[in-house]
Design a protein around this nucleic acid. Structure first.
Lengths: 102, 102
DNA sequence: TTATTATTTCGATAATTCTAGAAATATAGT
DNA sequence: ACTATATTTCTAGAATTATCGAAATAATAA
């Protein structure tokens, strides 16, 4: 994963409202949740919710699938996994091969 | 970990410059890196670097320890671990105990 | 005490992001 | 076609954040 990609995802889920959405969807698993259900749980205006969903989609954190009149939001679990890996990978890699030159 | 705490950390490390700092410090392990070394690697003005370091410190992501004239930045690995746990915990918890009521 | 290196504080500007009301669009049922 | 429900687009103001030069402070050495 590229640094800018990771930073973008982190910035998106770093908003409290969006993190709440992500947590709901993580808990919901592969079945996801309809936008309307998320709105009921979060109690925020639809336009604000759409704004945040747009951000999460653009970062690839979630996707939407239509089921008749309602849109289901689903977590992209693989993206989340990759992000977590990115944050911890190469931990302490420079301890032995210490490069003290700039 | 509280949601707002996690969101704050995520927002901080969601900045590309700060994520670069974090990655350097993760690789550096418990010995950390001096501010000046980070500056050389990132090639950014000192004031900008201080700005970002201040953010990372305020979120508890890193700490600083003085060694003579230089300040060493060190990753708070436990905080990072807790964050990663927070992002993945209770995954799919609502799949069985599905609560379709708002 | 003067000089040198290391790092931060101050201050100002540019850019981005959050929030939400009003209007628009999409889907399905009657 | 009309209605109801679901969701998004448009728009704009408020708030937050990023950036960096100049000046200030901290630690050490001469």
């Amino acid at each position: 994963m590229k640094l800018d990609t990771a930073a973008n995802i982190l910035a998106k889920i770093g908003n409290p409202t969006r993190l709440r959405i992500v947590r709901l969807l993580v808990r919901a698993g592969d079945e996801g949740l309809p936008v309307g259900m998320i709105q009921k749980k979060l109690k925020i205006p639809g336009s604000t919710l759409t704004h945040h969903i747009t951000h999460l989609k653009s970062a690839g954190v979630i996707r939407q699938e239509r089921q008749q009149a309602t849109l289901i939001c689903k977590m992209e679990f693989e993206v989340l996994r990759n992000l977590v890996d990115y944050l911890t990978e190469e931990c302490c890699a420079d301890i032995d091969a210490r490069e003290d030159a700039a």
